[in-house]
Design a protein around this nucleic acid. Structure first.
Length: 366
DNA sequence: GACGCGTGGGC
DNA sequence: TGCCCAAGCGT
């Protein structure tokens, strides 16, 4: 089918409608206030498989602590993980850190500008390379993330099982081709963000707001979209030791009581899940006598619901109740709150009133 | 190409 | 309240 002038005009109209919609509806997100490639990079890594609402607070804290690529490159990995604590997918933080060090040492501290070169850095895949290159440098390359995929599949009437010509890979190519065709070559960064914003705000997975969609008139499906079923959750019981002691004051003269400390254990650097993060020492048995049971809490990790029991343990019981485990440290509660804790550990310490929550509770809803 | 990797929020 | 995620990447 030859490309006609009518096609070109139709595409131009779609671009204009999308960009106008974006100008009116774009959210004022922290990373949209900076044009620095480093800032865009950090935001894109944090946003991988993570909700915007969660990222907002964490992004600002991270940028306050590591305002430049060099400051990130020079920081100890534990500091980077501490700022990532609670965000999940901790490999992202390690790869971001590694990439920053590589850029600082080998590229004079300058992040590559083209998508092709960005792609070679750890943690930067096809999507992230295109996002940074288009948003920070205006390279005319289209992004395809989950939002864009959903928007374009609905728009074109494609479903995962559609067409005899191939499976997921063929569909993926069709989506990439369509995204590239629609891309506004003069404003690739705005266009890409507009497509993703449309997916996030209007063309949502469930209950899309087609009445507000700039593409509605040309959309094949008006919101129809099938997604594959997820695997079922499984459950598992675990138990952890809450061991608290009073560290004697350094000088009796200056302090009557000492500092309260808690025992933490570091997960191995080689574990696949949450390597290098700190948690409460795990107990050999998930069974806890009621008298020692401090609390129970549920914590979902991937497809597993962990029913965790937190047991009050005295120092002299520790050896018999816990496996030898990894590196352990007594830390003050103040220090613990700033460490790379797993979310389960932070949740347990917070609920035991040993830590204060990172942010005050929001005001109650009316 | 399929799988492993986390989490808090929304419905 | 239990389920479903959300701006992917590396292996």
């Amino acid at each position: 089918m030859p490309k006609t002038e009518a096609d070109s005009a139709r595409i131009a109209a779609l671009r204009t409608r999308l960009l106008n919609w974006y100008a009116r509806n774009r959210r004022d997100l922290p990373w949209r206030q900076s044009a620095a490639p480093y800032a865009i990079w950090v935001s894109e890594i944090m946003l991988q498989q993570t909700r915007v609402a969660v990222v907002i607070e964490r992004y600002q804290a991270f940028m306050a602590r590591f305002p430049t690529l060099l400051s990130l490159a020079l920081a100890p990995e534990q500091d980077v993980l501490a700022l990532w604590s609670g965000l999940g997918y901790y490999r992202r933080a390690r790869m971001l850190h590694k990439a920053a060090q590589f850029v600082a040492e080998n590229l004079g501290g300058n992040l590559p500008t083209s998508a092709g070169q960005l792609r070679t850095l750890p943690g930067i895949g096809v999507y992230t390379a295109a996002a940074i290159a288009s948003i920070a440098h205006g390279e005319p390359v289209a992004v395809v993330d989950g939002n864009v995929e959903r928007v374009l599949c609905r728009f074109a009437g494609w479903s995962a099982s559609s067409g005899k010509s191939g499976g997921a890979a063929a569909l993926r190519r069709k989506i990439e081709n369509l995204a590239a065709k629609l891309l506004a070559p003069s404003r690739p960064g705005d266009f890409n963000q507009a497509m993703m914003e449309l997916g996030a705000l209007v063309c949502t997975p469930r209950n899309p707001l087609c009445a507000d969609c700039p593409f509605a008139a040309e959309c094949k499906t008006r919101g129809e979209h099938k997604t594959p079923r997820r695997a079922k959750m499984t459950s598992r019981a675990v138990a952890y030791a809450l061991v608290v002691r009073m560290k004697p004051a350094a000088s009796r003269r200056h302090s009557i009581c000492g500092v309260r400390q808690v025992l933490l254990e570091q997960r191995s650097e080689y574990q696949s899940v949450m390597p290098g993060l700190w948690e409460l020492p795990q107990l050999r048995s998930a069974e806890v006598p009621p008298t020692d049971l401090r609390m129970t809490l549920r914590h979902a990790i991937m497809q597993v619901n962990y029913y965790a029991r937190i047991r009050d343990v005295a120092e002299n019981e520790l050896a018999s109740l816990t496996a030898s485990g990894g590196k352990r440290r007594w830390v003050s509660l103040t220090e613990a709150s700033g460490m790379a804790l797993t979310s389960l550990a932070r949740k347990a310490l917070t609920r035991a009133h040993l830590l204060t929550p990172p942010l005050p509770d929001p005001p109650p809803k009316l």
